[in-house]
């Protein structure tokens, strides 16, 4: 049948294969991204529009307090909003793989059960980092400036946002592995995102909202992350928000990760 020696590599640990298989999956997704550049372009244009729209249209009407430029207030919000919206793509990509029958094929292979999901979410991490870089440049062009801070704090801010993005990718992965198809992943991916993003401090101060909404808006993950990034970028007390935000990231991952892998293992009836 074959002149080749088809003996698989043996004697490596579980962790080795989790990483190796995830890398194979990640590479595949990166090639896809590279070959369909339109998707990346659209994913970048939308947040750029948000920056311009909020700065020039709503910016004048939203009061963020004395001595703070709206664009400086806005940028951390748009960054976080972008990665949360962008997380949806993780679920859509997985739903796509399912519809194409690829997930079934992967599940019939002796590969690691987490590899498809880890590979996908890691690709989305790379994509998020790229989009953030482009957005930062646009922000700087329309007047955004880092405040009373330092390089380490700024890097920590971006690191926190990437961690946050990664956690939300896994939530989206649960959606993508559970719903019935790509369209459901699209709409199902949006519903839980809207209240999180808009009932937060991303675009307007929480203090301007009615009391009952503040109770939710103050402690939810988007607000704490935006506030932590704001403090890291503009200066000010950061410890509490940073800790709460990190706790959210860890908590979300701890729940969504196993749920997504479980959905993958279980498969779907067709």
């Amino acid at each position: 049948m074959s002149a080749l020696d088809l003996t698989p590599v043996a004697g490596r640990g579980r962790l080795f294969w989790q990483v190796a298989d995830a890398w194979v999956m990640c590479r595949r997704n990166l090639i896809q991204t590279w070959r369909v550049p339109e998707l990346l372009v659209f994913a970048t244009i939308q947040p750029i529009l948000f920056v311009l729209l909020f700065t020039y249209v709503f910016g004048g009407a939203i009061n963020v307090g004395p001595g703070v430029d709206y664009v400086d207030f806005l940028m951390p919000g748009v960054f976080v909003q972008t990665v949360v919206f962008g997380a949806m793509l993780t679920g859509i990509g997985l739903a796509n793989d399912r519809e194409a029958g690829l997930v079934d094929r992967f599940r019939s292979l002796p590969m690691s059960r987490s590899a498809l999901l880890t590979g996908r979410t890691l690709t989305d991490l790379v994509r998020n980092a790229f989009i953030m870089l482009v957005m930062l440049l646009v922000g700087l062009a329309v007047g955004f400036r880092f405040g009373d801070t330092n390089v380490l704090a700024v890097l920590a801010g971006f690191g926190l946002m990437l961690a946050f993005a990664y956690a939300f990718s896994w939530v989206s992965a649960v959606v993508g592995m559970s719903v019935s198809g790509v369209e459901a992943a699209q709409s199902g991916g949006m519903i839980w995102v809207f209240p999180l993003v808009f009932a937060s401090s991303a675009f307007a101060p929480v203090g301007s909202m009615p009391g009952w909404l503040q109770a939710f808006a103050k402690y939810q993950p988007v607000t704490t992350t935006v506030d932590a990034v704001r403090a890291l970028f503009l200066g000010g007390p950061v410890a509490e928000d940073l800790l709460v935000s990190l706790a959210w990231c860890v908590g979300i991952l701890a729940v969504a990760g196993p749920l997504a892998v479980r959905a993958y293992r279980r498969g779907t009836a067709r």
Partner: peptide, 13 residues
Amino acid sequence: EMFGRLYRLPSRV
């Protein structure tokens, strides 16, 4: 090639 890697064949094989 991808499926081969996932079957854990050495990359050359």
